[in-house]
Structure formats: C-alpha cells, structure tokens
C-alpha cells in the first residue's frame, strides 16, 4: 500500500471512516495573524485541517481569503503564528508539504500560446511524473475538453481555460488541494461535476481547502471557516 520510504505515521485522534489506509495528512495553523495596510485581516486563527475534510473559507470581498490560502500554501511569508505540516514545523517539512500540495490560484496558470496538452505536459513534468500523453488526453476529456486538446489555450473561453487548469486535479494526484475560487467562469454542469470531485477526493482520504462564493451542497465532509471584520469564526 505504501512505498515504505520515509517516515510514515498513522493518524491519531479523530479518524474518518474513509481513511483506513490513508497516511497522516494534517495541516495546522496556530495563532495565525496577518496584517495588511494597518488592518488585521485575521488574528488568533487556529486551524486543524485533516484528511477527509473539505474546508471552505468564507467571507466578504477583501476579508483575506486569498491571503489565508497563500499563507497556508507557503507562498506568503508575511504573517505571524506557526504552521505545521504532519505535526512538523512548516520550515522543516516544506519539501514534503509541496510534494503533497496542489494549489490553484485566481490566475489559472495556463499559457495562452500553448495548447492544453502542452500546458498539462509541463505540469506533469513538474509533478515528477513520466511523460504520459494518454493520461493527459484522459484528463482533458474528463474536464470536458475533448476535441480542444490541440488548440492554443488563448483561443479557448475563460471557462475552458479554467477547465484546463482543473484537469490537473485529475492528472497529478496530490492529497492536499488548495483551490482559490475554482468555480470562476465554470458553467452549471461543470460546477456540479467539480463539487462532486471535491467530495470524492475528501472521501478517498484527500483534503480540500477552498474559497468560493458558490454555495456548496452540505455534506458530512464540509467544514467552514468564516473570515471578516478582523475576527474569525471557525465552526462546522
């Protein structure tokens, strides 16, 4: 089931019924605070995100959702508090963390001059996977881009470009997904399919951290974090 390399730990504490075989997957933040332009975006934020969870970060525009996601994905160093990955401080666990992370920001990270296939080829290589064109075709078909594989991405619509980026969820399997507004520009069918994908990922022992203004269908895996007004409300 596992490769047997590296330190492996069985998750202690609360266990998800879907998690018999999954290894520990835990992102924690302690007393996290971030200040922007003399204003606290959030203070005293404690987070404990585990395998099998979908955590939705909510809040009005400008409440620091993107900033929080960037801090949690290790892109911003401008914060107070401590981050832990697998119960190790982020500084020591950074490489392991990045190997497990799939981050998708506001900008989809799709090159307009390259075709969807070429875009995915780069992501495949960056994930350390061997070249596998069949997998790329399958991933594009899965996000509804069959027939658009060889068109420059710049000629695709905004929603289709977003779908190219979403194909990474299928193509490069990573347990921790950090998705910033993934539903942007996606049509109604696509939104349903993506939502389904998030739930399936959590049920298979993955972990999803997501911001969206789209109302997610309530399910057992879903948890909410509310930002806004400097205070933080962490609830279920």
């Amino acid at each position: 089931m596992t490769s047997g390399k590296g330190p492996l730990r069985v998750e202690s504490g609360r266990k998800s019924p879907f998690l018999e075989s999954a290894l520990s997957l835990r992102l924690q933040a302690q007393n996290l605070a971030c200040e922007r332009d003399d204003r606290w975006l959030f203070r005293g934020l404690d987070l404990d995100i585990r395998a099998g969870e979908i955590v939705r970060v909510e809040g009005p525009n400008g409440s620091g959702k993107t900033t929080l996601l960037k801090i949690l994905s290790g892109q911003l160093a401008d914060y107070e508090g401590e981050l832990y990955w697998d119960e190790r401080p982020m500084r020591q666990a950074r490489e392991s963390f990045l190997s497990n992370l799939l981050y998708m920001g506001h900008a989809p990270g799709v090159k307009a001059a390259l075709t969807p296939l070429e875009n995915l080829a780069w992501y495949q290589a960056m994930a350390g996977q061997p070249r596998d064109e069949a997998a790329r075709f399958a991933a594009l078909e899965d996000v509804g881009l069959a027939g658009f594989e060889d068109l420059p991405a710049g000629q695709l619509s905004a929603g289709q470009q977003r779908r190219v980026a979403l194909a990474r969820l299928v193509l490069t399997p990573r347990p921790l997904w950090v998705l910033d507004e993934p539903f942007t520009a996606i049509d109604r069918d696509g939104v349903g399919a993506l939502e389904q994908r998030l739930v399936e990922h959590a049920r298979r022992g993955g972990c999803v951290l997501v911001t969206t203004h789209h109302e997610l269908t309530p399910c057992a895996e879903l948890r909410r974090i509310r930002l806004g007004g400097g205070g933080v409300d962490v609830g279920n």
């Binding site: 999954a22 990045l98 347990p175």
Partner: peptide, 8 residues
C-alpha cells in the same frame, strides 16, 4: 484512497 506523496 489518496495517500501521502513522497518528495520526488
């Protein structure tokens, strides 16, 4: 199930 990915 989705397990850990070892640094590659």
């Amino acid at each position: 199930s989705v397990g850990h990915v070892e640094p590659q």
